[in-house]
Amino acid sequence: MVLTEIYDLLYRLGITANYTGFFHMGYAVKLCCERPERLLMVTKWVYPEVAKRYQTNGRAVERNIRTVGKVLWEQNRPALEQLAGRPLSDKPGNAQLLAMLSHCLLVQPASEAACSMEGRR
C-alpha cells in the first residue's frame, strides 16, 4: 500500500494535510494494511512506529489521530458511515477508524462505492 493512495482517501473524506494527524493517520493506515494484526494493539504496535517516523511520542500520535477522527465525525459523518457500511451511533475510536480505512483500502479498490466519497461532502 502506497501512502499516496491512503492520502487520496483521506482527502476524499475531507481530511487535509493541514492537520498533523493527516500524516500520522496515513502512516498508521499503511502499517495496518501491511500487517492487519497491528489493529489488535494499536497503542503498542502502531503508535510507537508512527511516533518514531515523525520524531514525536505515542501520546501525540494518539491525540492527532483522535483529532482527525473528531473532524471526520463532525464534518463528514455521512462519508464515515458510508465507509463503515452502516449507520454509526457513536464516534468510532482510533482503532476502529484505522480498521475501517485499512479495510477499505485492502478489500475494495479506491474506485468502488464503499471507498468512493465523491459527492458526499
Results as ranks from 00 to 15, higher is better:
Gln108Trp: 14
Thr67Lys: 04
Ser116Arg: 08
Leu40Pro: 00
Met41Gly: 07
Glu81Met: 06
Leu98Pro: 00
Gln55Asn: 15
Phe22Leu: 10
Pro87Phe: 06
Ala113Thr: 12
Ser89Gly: 10
Glu81Gln: 11
Val107Phe: 12
Glu5Gly: 08
Cys32Met: 07
Leu10Val: 05
Glu5Ile: 10
Gln82Lys: 14
His103Phe: 10
Val68Asn: 04
Asn57Thr: 13
Ala17Ile: 04
Leu106Glu: 07
Leu3Asn: 08
Ser111Phe: 08
Arg53Glu: 11
Cys32Thr: 08
Gly69Phe: 00
Ala84Val: 15
Pro48His: 13
Lys52Tyr: 15
Asn76Arg: 13
Ser102Arg: 12
Pro109Gln: 13
Val42Trp: 00
Ser89Trp: 05
Ala28Arg: 04
Leu97Ser: 00
Phe23Leu: 06
Leu10Met: 12
Tyr19Cys: 06
Glu49Gln: 13
Glu37Asn: 09
Gln75Phe: 15
Asp8Lys: 10
Glu118Met: 09
Thr56Glu: 09
Ala79Met: 14
Phe23Trp: 06
Thr16Lys: 08
Glu112Pro: 07
Lys70Met: 09
Asn18Ser: 11
Arg66Ala: 02
Gly85Phe: 04
Lys52Ile: 14
Ser116Glu: 10
Arg12Cys: 09
Asp90His: 15
Pro87His: 13
Arg53Gly: 05
Ala113Asn: 09
His24Asn: 09
Ile6Tyr: 01
Arg35Glu: 11
Leu106Asp: 10
Arg77His: 12
Pro87Met: 12
Glu112Lys: 14
Ala84Asp: 10
Gln75Ala: 15
Glu74Val: 06
Gly93Thr: 07
Pro78Asp: 13
Gly26Glu: 02
Glu62Arg: 09
Glu37Gln: 10
Gly69Ala: 06
Thr4Lys: 12
Glu34Tyr: 06
Thr67Arg: 03
Gly93Ile: 05
Ala51Cys: 13
Gly58Asn: 03
Val50Cys: 08
Ala79Val: 14
Trp73Lys: 02
Glu74Ser: 12
Arg59Ala: 13
Ala99Gln: 05
Lys70Phe: 04
Asn64Phe: 02
Asn57Phe: 13
Ser111Ala: 12
Gly119Cys: 12
Val68Pro: 01
Leu13Phe: 09
Ser111Ile: 03
Ala99Ser: 10
Leu13Ala: 09
Leu31Tyr: 03
Ala113Phe: 15
Val42Met: 00
Tyr27Ala: 05
Ile6Thr: 07
Val46Lys: 03
